[in-house]
Design a protein around this nucleic acid. Structure first.
Lengths: 207, 207
DNA sequence: AGCCAATGCAAGTACTTACTTACATTTACA
DNA sequence: TGTAAATGTAAGTAAGTACTTGCATTGGCT
């Protein structure tokens, strides 16, 4: 019995994620969420006392899935450029998969700061730390120069990917390059930026 | 008389921008917008027949202001790095000024595609074209290598700035670097990427 | 079979929203 | 000063919302 209860709870959470993503938090109705889960609206309120608590449970439910994202990231087997390309595509696919949810929480960030931070921070945090740890080994190995601020650089890198996804969905005009080409270009730009090649040009001492 | 009418219309538009930005499109109420403009709610409906038409007028009103943004961008007087730093700070300040509005339209992109595209595209388009045109002269001058896909590169550059703004407001945690430092680092990374320094490392032919 | 938790169903409550109508009042300008 | 456009005031409508209550029904477990 408690298994079927957990089942309907999960279906309610999934339906809530879908409704919140596409309709927004205020725009999504408990009636529609219940219908999407195939249950009565009253059942929704028996599981979650209010719409706010449902939202909190949704945020918890999403962050609980974060461990899965790490499964395929233990292969830093190739050179820096190839490894980063693999990571970039993985990251970009995650962004694409949850694009509606991400955009929704970006818009709702000031109205629901806790849930926004919980989802958008905790979900990508392990991936981010994994990438930073890898780049640190590259610094020791000499394939990344030591002056690089790794957390900042990683934010730049993932920021380019995030902005690319947002552009695709918010300003869907023909931009003259494909999605894959953009991802590859981000890797190229990033690698050139962190490689120990030429002299460092700092903006505080312009050439 | 028609001057005072235009005045109340403008005040309604400004109040609508503020309300839409902070409360979202569905969350913002006509009552609150009218109160913010200091007029009666009925006056709002006499100027704009519906909330939807008010939103459309808001989008038009915002894009009509875009010309102003170009005023201070005709100074490409220094070297590449310095010029880009000036541009980056200008762009970043614009992002910061309209952060709530930008986040709102990102979240509402699929529900109001026309208005989202109108605002987020047309507003930054002239700035973008201005930057591309400048970089084209740099290619001719030899300070930017010729293989660079300029529109893509500019999207990467502005994308990093956009993502930086979003992180500040959506995931407001201490990141170990200041806002200015992030902007400078974006310029550094970008300049290293488009400068004709070392050999090109393409992701299609990794070293 | 029988119990009990989980769900369904019908109806209702209290509230808010966008939007309207009718009439009174202000305000600019000729 | 007179007139007409612009605004204010008061009241109301129709619809949707989150959420509740009471009771009937299901379905798994012992």
């Amino acid at each position: 019995m408690s298994q079927s209860k957990a089942k309907t709870r999960d279906r309610l959470l999934e339906a809530a994620i879908a409704a919140f993503s596409t309709e927004g938090i205020v725009g999504a109705t408990t009636r529609e969420i219940a219908r999407g889960a195939g249950v009565n609206e009253v059942t929704l309120f028996r599981h979650f006392q209010s719409k706010e608590q449902l939202l909190a449970a949704v945020a918890e439910h999403i962050t609980a899935l974060k461990a899965e994202a790490l499964i395929h990231t233990d292969e830093w087997s190739q050179d820096l450029q190839s490894n980063l390309l693999v990571y970039a595509h993985l990251h970009d696919n995650m962004l694409e998969e949850y694009e509606a949810l991400i955009r929704m929480f970006i818009g709702e960030a000031k109205r629901h700061p806790h849930e926004s931070l919980q989802v958008l921070q905790e979900y990508f945090l392990p991936l981010r730390n994994h990438l930073i740890a890898y780049l640190r080994t590259c610094v020791e190995r000499g394939t990344v120069h030591a002056e690089v601020d790794l957390p900042l650089a990683v934010d730049q890198f993932t920021g380019m990917l995030l902005a690319g996804m947002l552009r695709r969905h918010v300003v869907p005009v023909e931009r003259g390059y494909s999605r894959d080409r953009y991802v590859e270009a981000c890797v190229d730009l990033f690698v050139r930026g962190i490689s120990p090649s030429a002299a460092l040009t700092s903006s505080t001492s312009p050439a």
